[in-house]
Design a binder for these strands. Structure first.
Lengths: 336, 336
DNA sequence: CTCGTGTTTGTAACCGGTTACAAACAGCTA
DNA sequence: TAGCTGTTTGTAACCGGTTACAAACACGAG
């Protein structure tokens, strides 16, 4: 193995020898500490260039005890809301000198356990997971590695780990209240699978709780554009349409809008349509889709700051509630 | 620092002492080598449990020389095509025991240079980047660290690094040919910024080259849903509509479709619309958007296999061309 | 010239695994 | 019982940085 590589990578000691200084001095130059004379620093830098020296991350993290890596566990990347969130998270973390290791669970418990173990095994300094519902195996794993852990996409000050996110219950109730205030009393709630997504489960529970005298029907479909279309198809076939359709994701709202168009059902004249997440097409569609703007990017940014701060100070992060708000567009109208 | 932590994490030597064996034996147990007697193995495992021993990734990778991490550099996560690709890439890599470190460049050269440096600095064993056009600084960096590097989203057997992707030129020409075969001679090509995206630049060049007697107009807009709408607005204002609009991304095609609806321009009767990427809504929209299906997930999977193989065998990966194909839907029609 | 202070540099002991090599040991044969 | 083979285990030297501590040195003051 070693025999093959004619020239192994240069080490810090090689550089020291070449520059005629000690390893401590080279290390100081690398770490930008200002305790090295200009003259020496130049000699060292020159040696580094000549030898094409590249410091070993493993050695550094072994002796310093810091890996400079943060792990993020998300159910999927193939959904705009998570992608946008991770996009910002990565950017912010990298600004603080941390790398982001991503693991996708697909919402499957065993996969989640395996992946969180892998992440921790990689020596991450901090962990950021989406959603608060996890298996015992997951909790045990996190507990044992004793790594600062943050929960996102959810706000719950009483959760086991600090949460950074929006209050799914409150938001869902706000959406429902909005439709009610427009005079809607027959509402269909289109949603994705609840067994793998506690945010959705929370929203549904909140809506059920706040339904009051309104007639609320739940239509479970897949968390895809197609799911929204399926929901509309099913509703049309099964009986009278509600006066409003609330999709718990704009992905589904998009599909619903298209299916309504296909069936010549006018939005919002014949039925009002409301979404969730405020994904980019909702502002452009015809009509525009009334939606709940979730601060996905902000969540990434806040989570980054929180974990970095936790690692820096050693003080556990505090939960942070992010605000969402309703964006009113043409897809909803007031009744009579 | 050390004083604070009452109980430091147990090390392999602690485990050895507790189990009354040598460190070599513990290491053997950890690495599942079958050279340890059942009796000893049990004692060691018990000690590991009692002490809550967690092996140090840094130490392991220092002495073994392997970090088990792969880096991926993408322009953005906030675009379905990249997200889907990364989703698969991560899943496949994790199956091979590798973690995925993601870095987002935003298409900015300086950011790209900084981030690739960070990735390499983290000690990644392999690097996967999107697109083949990069700065000299980028190349120098990769060269110096001498890490196996793969290029995706692009197929070009002559590129500096092995490419895994589709032939953007051929695909673009196929799309154009398809519209021509339907009798379209006045075509508008809506596209995103070319300065940060070589895939788009390649597509445009190929279309220009193959235009022939067809009248092809290019409409540069942002790579967003809104961009597609902007393009339509601009075209309507500036003169006669083309008979077909080809959007180099389905994201833009979606925006274009909505804007056409808004302006009461019927698709495909008054204008045909074709997209690129075959994102999920294109199959559901009304009408369905004719598009080019790009094998994003397959690309993630193939790239994963290629880099893992490269690392395992030491043999440079070979370029792989992935096939794309046209998905005909209702948004395009043959001219009289 | 001596002492004190501040700057620059070097030595060597870590960090926590992996692994080459050798030793110890068991079982079997001659 | 000596000798051989194969299995199990231990010792100690790595891997390549960081850093505590001390030494060397320069400079100005007394």
């Amino acid at each position: 193995m070693n025999v093959i590589r004619k020239s192994k990578r240069a080490t810090l000691r090689d550089v020291a020898r070449h520059a005629q200084v000690s390893v401590a001095t080279v290390s100081r130059v690398l770490n930008k500490s200002e305790l090295v004379s200009t003259d020496t620093r130049n000699r060292v830098n020159q040696a580094i260039d000549v030898l094409e020296f590249v410091p070993s991350a493993a050695a550094r993290s072994l002796s310093s005890g810091r890996s400079r890596a943060i792990g993020a566990l998300v159910p999927t990347l193939d959904h705009a809301i998570f992608a946008r969130y991770l996009d910002t998270l990565e950017d912010q973390l990298s600004g603080h000198g941390y790398a982001l290791i991503v693991a996708v669970t697909g919402g499957v418990a065993e996969v989640e356990e395996r992946k969180v173990h892998n992440l921790l095994d990689m020596g991450i300094e901090g962990l950021i997971v989406s959603g608060k519902r996890h298996t015992k195996g997951f909790a045990a794993c996190v507990e044992r590695f004793a790594v600062p852990t943050l929960i996102t996409s959810y706000y719950d000050p009483d959760a086991q780990y600090p949460t950074i996110g929006y209050d799914n219950s409150a938001i869902a109730q706000a959406a429902l209240a909005h439709l009610k205030s427009l005079g809607h009393h027959s509402i269909a709630v289109v949603h994705g699978p609840t067994d793998v997504n506690d945010r959705i489960a929370a929203r549904i529970a909140a809506i059920e709780e706040a339904a009051g005298e309104a007639q609320v029907r739940f239509v479970p479909v897949s968390m895809r554009v197609e799911g929204g279309a399926d929901a509309v198809a099913r509703m049309v076939e099964q009986g009278p349409l509600p006066s409003a359709i609330l999709c718990l994701s704009d992905v589904q709202a998009l599909g619903a809008l298209f299916e309504l168009q296909r069936r010549n059902i006018t939005v919002p004249d014949e039925v009002s349509l409301m979404g969730f997440d405020d994904l980019e097409w909702s502002a452009v569609s015809f009509p525009g889709i009334t939606s709940i703007q979730l601060p996905a990017a902000e969540m990434g940014s806040v989570a980054s700051d929180a974990i970095v701060d936790w690692l820096r100070t050693g003080n556990r992060a505090t939960p942070k509630r992010l605000e969402a708000h309703i964006v009113e567009r043409g897809s909803t109208r007031a009744l009579g």
